[in-house]
Amino acid sequence: MNITVGIADMKVSDDPGVTLVTHSLGSCIGLAVYDPVAKVGGMLHYMLPESELDTKKAKTRPLMFADTGIPVLFKACYNLGAAKGRMIVKVAGGAQVMDASGIFNIGKRNYAALRKIFWRNKVIIDGEDIGGMVNRTMRLSIATGELSLKVSGQGNRIL
């Protein structure tokens, strides 16, 4: 069964029949985590880097921002029995339009925010497909932990 992760949304599961899917990863980032021992996985689709931009919004919609959304995802997986040391972490998205000035580049800021949080918490990224001018769809199989990507104009691949 496919479970869709919307924009500013997150899903976790320990049901081997489930595949988590998120669409429309442009400048947004899709973060997929998986514990192969507990067979627990989760996916977050966040839109923006820092919650300080709108702290009120971050309280009601923590999954909108990297810094408030990422901890929620990890905690939800721990609650299902996942362990930090076993977690496989994969990231996709952070694309941008053609823009030399960088003013439109929310994607790059989104990725930088994630790196900062991971560095601080000693989380290593096991696979990533970041940037470019493409749109991505991400699928995580809870049974196998396989993460597949559909990249606009390029087709499918396993990350």
């Binding site: 339009v97 439109f104 493409v134």
Partner: peptide
């Protein structure tokens, strides 16, 4: 902005010019 967010974006992707 809509393209950047990837909403209703096809295989032309985000390959359009952002003009500062």
């Amino acid at each position: 902005i809509t393209l950047s967010m990837g909403i209703g974006v096809g295989r032309d992707g985000l390959s359009y010019r952002g003009k500062e």
